[in-house]
Nucleic acid binder design. Structure first.
Lengths: 109, 109
DNA sequence: ATTATATTTCGTATTTTTGCGAAACACTAA
DNA sequence: TTAGTGTTTCGCAAAAATACGAAATATAAT
């Protein structure tokens, strides 16, 4: 069966999807602001069940945007540098590419 | 009831979510490559039912990334310049912000 | 060994997304 | 008015996402 999308299209969509929930945006911002390597008491920062938080962390992890380090008694998370940059490049490139390509289109709805 | 997420977090997640499907990435690339203002025969470019395509276009439209112009006998779509730039700024800013903030974290899984 | 702490997995319910074909709609051309 | 073209909406079904509490897991401290 035919594959209708390129690898880059799939990768880009995958990263974007991981960013597609405000809880995950917030989690990434928290991880970022703490410098890095933060644990699950992210839940103190906003009302969310630990199990729900865990699911979002898993999402971010499987998408490759964060990594977890088992560092007892905590599990610490941080942004995954390499993949983050890959995502950044894909997204930046995608967004920039369109920058000046639209023609004058007066549609408003 | 309390609102756990900021406006920017919600906006960013909303845009990202709209980009979170390869079909929509592809649609945006097609719109971009055609210069702009293109109609629904996007469906020629890859295997997708017209009704499904219509749904994805609606998604992109409600997210604000594209706009449709009723220009009989076609309905033409193009990238929504203002919102696209808003999305770009939000996303760029978000992605860049994290760039150098992670601390050395040797986690690999 | 027991207890306490941090986190994940399980089970479940609800909602949303995705996809398609059929039918409806809107507008043009005959 | 009728037929034709492009697009959307409807109805449906299947899959995925979201959220939570309860139970399980893992490790540290006692």
């Amino acid at each position: 069966m035919k594959v209708p999308y390129s690898d880059d299209q799939n990768r880009l969509a995958r990263f974007a999807k991981a960013l597609g929930h405000p809880a995950r945006i917030k989690i990434l911002e928290i991880l970022s602001n703490r410098g890095c390597c933060y644990s699950g008491n992210i839940a103190d920062e906003f009302p969310i069940a630990l199990s729900t938080l865990s699911q979002h962390l898993k999402e971010l992890k499987t998408a490759g945007l964060i990594q977890g380090e088992i560092n007892p008694p905590y599990i610490k998370y941080c942004i995954h540098k390499e993949n983050w940059n890959i995502a950044k490049n894909l997204i930046d490139n995608f967004l920039a590419e369109k920058k000046d390509k639209y023609s004058p289109c007066d549609a408003t709805s």
